[in-house]
Design a protein around this nucleic acid. Structure first.
Length: 228
DNA sequence: TACCAGGAGAAAA
DNA sequence: TTTTCTCATGGT
Protein backbone atom coordinates (compact mmCIF):
# COMPACT_ATOMS: atom_id res chain seq x y z
CA UNK A 1 0.00 0.00 0.00
CA UNK A 2 1.30 3.41 -0.93
CA UNK A 3 2.34 5.66 1.90
CA UNK A 4 2.94 2.93 4.45
CA UNK A 5 6.61 2.28 3.77
CA UNK A 6 8.99 2.83 6.64
CA UNK A 7 10.75 6.10 5.96
CA UNK A 8 12.57 6.93 9.21
CA UNK A 9 13.85 10.27 7.96
CA UNK A 10 10.30 11.54 7.53
CA UNK A 11 8.94 10.41 10.90
CA UNK A 12 8.25 13.36 13.17
CA UNK A 13 8.86 13.47 16.90
CA UNK A 14 7.10 16.29 18.69
CA UNK A 15 6.66 15.23 22.31
CA UNK A 16 5.00 17.55 24.76
CA UNK A 17 7.19 19.21 27.33
CA UNK A 18 4.93 17.89 30.09
CA UNK A 19 5.37 14.28 28.95
CA UNK A 20 9.15 14.58 28.88
CA UNK A 21 9.19 16.36 32.23
CA UNK A 22 6.98 13.66 33.71
CA UNK A 23 9.39 10.93 32.60
CA UNK A 24 12.31 12.96 33.91
CA UNK A 25 10.57 13.48 37.23
CA UNK A 26 9.84 9.78 37.68
CA UNK A 27 13.40 8.80 36.83
CA UNK A 28 14.89 11.48 39.07
CA UNK A 29 12.63 10.45 41.92
CA UNK A 30 13.72 6.83 41.50
CA UNK A 31 17.46 7.30 41.05
CA UNK A 32 18.41 10.82 42.14
CA UNK A 33 21.27 12.80 40.64
CA UNK A 34 23.57 10.77 38.37
CA UNK A 35 26.38 13.28 37.74
CA UNK A 36 26.87 11.60 34.39
CA UNK A 37 29.31 11.45 32.55
CA UNK A 38 32.01 9.70 34.59
CA UNK A 39 35.32 11.37 33.83
CA UNK A 40 37.73 13.60 35.71
CA UNK A 41 38.66 15.88 32.80
CA UNK A 42 37.12 16.95 29.48
CA UNK A 43 39.78 14.92 27.69
CA UNK A 44 38.89 11.80 29.67
CA UNK A 45 35.25 12.35 28.73
CA UNK A 46 36.21 12.68 25.07
CA UNK A 47 38.24 9.46 25.17
CA UNK A 48 35.39 7.68 26.92
CA UNK A 49 32.93 8.85 24.27
CA UNK A 50 34.90 6.99 21.60
CA UNK A 51 35.65 3.93 23.70
CA UNK A 52 32.02 3.42 24.66
CA UNK A 53 30.85 3.07 21.07
CA UNK A 54 28.70 -0.08 21.04
CA UNK A 55 30.36 -1.16 24.27
CA UNK A 56 29.25 -1.52 27.87
CA UNK A 57 30.71 1.15 30.14
CA UNK A 58 32.25 -1.41 32.50
CA UNK A 59 34.64 -2.41 29.72
CA UNK A 60 35.42 1.22 28.92
CA UNK A 61 36.47 1.74 32.54
CA UNK A 62 39.07 -1.00 32.20
CA UNK A 63 40.52 0.62 29.09
CA UNK A 64 40.61 4.05 30.75
CA UNK A 65 42.30 2.53 33.79
CA UNK A 66 44.95 1.07 31.48
CA UNK A 67 45.55 4.48 29.90
CA UNK A 68 45.80 6.11 33.32
CA UNK A 69 48.23 3.57 34.73
CA UNK A 70 50.38 3.96 31.62
CA UNK A 71 50.22 7.76 32.07
CA UNK A 72 48.75 8.11 28.56
CA UNK A 73 45.46 9.82 29.36
CA UNK A 74 46.50 13.23 28.08
CA UNK A 75 46.27 14.63 24.58
CA UNK A 76 50.02 14.90 24.06
CA UNK A 77 50.77 11.49 25.55
CA UNK A 78 48.11 9.78 23.49
CA UNK A 79 49.18 11.40 20.23
CA UNK A 80 52.69 10.08 20.87
CA UNK A 81 51.49 6.47 20.96
CA UNK A 82 51.52 4.35 17.85
CA UNK A 83 48.28 2.65 16.92
CA UNK A 84 49.36 -0.82 18.02
CA UNK A 85 50.41 0.33 21.49
CA UNK A 86 47.22 2.32 21.89
CA UNK A 87 45.13 -0.62 20.71
CA UNK A 88 46.74 -2.85 23.31
CA UNK A 89 45.92 -0.41 26.12
CA UNK A 90 42.28 -0.07 25.09
CA UNK A 91 41.79 -3.77 24.29
CA UNK A 92 39.18 -4.33 27.06
CA UNK A 93 36.80 -1.88 25.39
CA UNK A 94 36.50 -4.06 22.29
CA UNK A 95 36.98 -3.03 18.64
CA UNK A 96 40.41 -1.94 19.81
CA UNK A 97 42.05 -1.61 16.39
CA UNK A 98 39.22 0.53 15.04
CA UNK A 99 38.96 2.62 18.20
CA UNK A 100 42.72 3.21 18.27
CA UNK A 101 42.51 4.78 14.81
CA UNK A 102 39.43 6.78 15.79
CA UNK A 103 41.05 8.08 18.98
CA UNK A 104 44.16 9.10 17.11
CA UNK A 105 42.08 10.97 14.52
CA UNK A 106 40.19 12.81 17.24
CA UNK A 107 43.38 13.64 19.13
CA UNK A 108 44.96 14.98 15.97
CA UNK A 109 41.90 17.16 15.39
CA UNK A 110 42.07 18.52 18.96
CA UNK A 111 45.82 19.06 18.75
CA UNK A 112 45.57 20.88 15.43
CA UNK A 113 42.95 23.17 16.94
CA UNK A 114 45.17 24.16 19.84
CA UNK A 115 44.14 21.58 22.46
CA UNK A 116 40.94 20.56 24.22
CA UNK A 117 40.25 23.90 25.90
CA UNK A 118 40.83 25.84 22.67
CA UNK A 119 37.35 24.72 21.55
CA UNK A 120 35.58 26.12 24.61
CA UNK A 121 34.33 29.22 22.80
CA UNK A 122 33.70 27.73 19.37
CA UNK A 123 30.00 28.15 18.42
CA UNK A 124 28.04 24.97 19.01
CA UNK A 125 26.98 24.48 15.38
CA UNK A 126 30.53 24.97 14.15
CA UNK A 127 32.03 22.60 16.72
CA UNK A 128 29.40 19.93 16.02
CA UNK A 129 30.03 20.13 12.28
CA UNK A 130 33.80 19.95 12.80
CA UNK A 131 33.51 16.98 15.18
CA UNK A 132 31.31 15.12 12.70
CA UNK A 133 34.04 15.61 10.13
CA UNK A 134 36.53 13.65 12.25
CA UNK A 135 36.94 9.99 11.33
CA UNK A 136 35.16 7.84 13.89
CA UNK A 137 32.97 10.59 15.33
CA UNK A 138 29.31 10.05 14.55
CA UNK A 139 26.32 11.97 15.85
CA UNK A 140 26.03 10.31 19.23
CA UNK A 141 29.75 10.55 19.93
CA UNK A 142 29.82 14.20 18.83
CA UNK A 143 26.88 15.02 21.07
CA UNK A 144 28.40 13.17 24.04
CA UNK A 145 31.47 15.36 23.62
CA UNK A 146 29.46 18.57 23.16
CA UNK A 147 27.28 18.00 26.21
CA UNK A 148 29.66 16.46 28.70
CA UNK A 149 33.09 17.77 27.72
CA UNK A 150 32.02 21.22 26.49
CA UNK A 151 28.81 21.79 28.46
CA UNK A 152 26.71 22.61 25.39
CA UNK A 153 22.90 22.14 25.43
CA UNK A 154 22.73 19.12 23.11
CA UNK A 155 20.45 16.18 23.90
CA UNK A 156 22.21 12.85 23.34
CA UNK A 157 20.21 10.13 21.62
CA UNK A 158 21.35 6.57 22.12
CA UNK A 159 19.92 3.07 21.85
CA UNK A 160 18.61 3.30 25.41
CA UNK A 161 16.73 6.51 24.65
CA UNK A 162 15.11 4.94 21.60
CA UNK A 163 14.17 1.81 23.52
CA UNK A 164 12.69 3.56 26.55
CA UNK A 165 10.69 6.21 24.67
CA UNK A 166 9.49 3.63 22.19
CA UNK A 167 8.20 1.49 25.06
CA UNK A 168 6.56 4.54 26.61
CA UNK A 169 4.71 5.14 23.35
CA UNK A 170 6.24 8.59 22.96
CA UNK A 171 8.38 7.63 19.97
CA UNK A 172 8.49 4.91 17.36
CA UNK A 173 12.12 4.22 17.96
CA UNK A 174 13.29 4.27 14.36
CA UNK A 175 13.18 8.02 13.88
CA UNK A 176 16.20 9.71 12.38
CA UNK A 177 18.73 10.75 15.03
CA UNK A 178 18.32 14.46 14.31
CA UNK A 179 14.54 14.23 14.52
CA UNK A 180 14.73 12.74 18.01
CA UNK A 181 17.43 15.13 19.20
CA UNK A 182 15.55 18.22 18.03
CA UNK A 183 12.32 16.88 19.49
CA UNK A 184 13.86 16.64 22.94
CA UNK A 185 15.70 19.94 22.67
CA UNK A 186 12.67 21.90 21.51
CA UNK A 187 10.34 20.42 24.09
CA UNK A 188 12.70 20.82 27.04
CA UNK A 189 14.47 24.01 26.06
CA UNK A 190 18.26 24.44 26.27
CA UNK A 191 19.34 23.18 29.67
CA UNK A 192 22.79 21.62 29.98
CA UNK A 193 22.25 20.41 33.53
CA UNK A 194 18.94 18.71 32.74
CA UNK A 195 20.18 17.22 29.47
CA UNK A 196 23.15 15.75 31.32
CA UNK A 197 21.04 14.32 34.11
CA UNK A 198 18.32 13.10 31.76
CA UNK A 199 20.76 11.07 29.70
CA UNK A 200 22.42 9.72 32.82
CA UNK A 201 19.05 8.70 34.20
CA UNK A 202 18.13 6.99 30.94
CA UNK A 203 21.36 5.00 31.03
CA UNK A 204 20.85 4.09 34.67
CA UNK A 205 17.24 3.06 34.12
CA UNK A 206 17.92 1.05 30.98
CA UNK A 207 20.62 -0.96 32.70
CA UNK A 208 18.27 -1.84 35.54
CA UNK A 209 15.06 -2.52 33.66
CA UNK A 210 15.33 -2.41 29.89
CA UNK A 211 18.44 -4.33 28.87
CA UNK A 212 18.30 -7.85 27.50
CA UNK A 213 15.27 -9.74 28.73
CA UNK A 214 12.44 -7.47 29.89
CA UNK A 215 12.68 -6.84 33.60
CA UNK A 216 9.81 -4.48 34.32
CA UNK A 217 8.91 -5.53 37.85
CA UNK A 218 9.30 -2.50 40.07
CA UNK A 219 10.00 -0.16 37.15
CA UNK A 220 9.44 3.49 38.11
CA UNK A 221 7.92 4.16 34.66
CA UNK A 222 5.45 1.26 34.83
CA UNK A 223 2.44 3.51 35.34
CA UNK A 224 3.02 5.32 32.03
CA UNK A 225 4.73 2.53 30.05
CA UNK A 226 2.99 0.67 27.22
CA UNK A 227 5.56 -2.13 27.24
CA UNK A 228 4.24 -5.12 29.14
C1' DT B 1 27.79 -22.31 23.58
C1' DA B 2 25.24 -18.57 21.90
C1' DC B 3 23.71 -14.16 22.22
C1' DC B 4 23.85 -9.34 23.25
C1' DA B 5 25.71 -4.66 24.18
C1' DG B 6 25.26 3.05 24.80
C1' DG B 7 28.33 3.09 17.19
C1' DA B 8 30.49 4.21 13.01
C1' DG B 9 32.36 3.64 8.43
C1' DA B 10 32.71 1.24 4.19
C1' DA B 11 30.76 -1.54 0.80
C1' DA B 12 26.90 -3.31 -1.52
C1' DA B 13 22.30 -3.08 -3.29
C1' DT C 1 19.70 6.71 -0.63
C1' DT C 2 19.21 2.75 2.16
C1' DT C 3 20.76 -1.59 3.84
C1' DT C 4 24.22 -4.78 5.17
C1' DC C 5 28.57 -6.05 6.87
C1' DT C 6 32.55 -5.55 9.82
C1' DC C 7 34.91 -4.57 13.91
C1' DA C 8 35.84 -7.59 19.37
C1' DT C 9 35.61 -8.05 24.32
C1' DG C 10 33.11 -9.55 28.35
C1' DG C 11 28.88 -10.72 30.85
C1' DT C 12 24.73 -13.60 31.14
Amino acid sequence: MAGTQKTPGLISFTPSASALQQVYGLLFEAYGEQHWWPGETPFEIIVGAVLTQNTAWVNVEKAIANLKSAHRLTLDALIGLDNDALAELIRPSGYFNIKARRLKSLCEFLHAGGGVSAFDRVPIAVLRKDLLGVHGVGRETADDILLYAYNRPVFVIDAYTRRIFSRLGLARGDEDYEVLRQGFEQALGPNVEQFSEYHGLIVRHAKDFCSKKPRCSGCCLAEICEFK
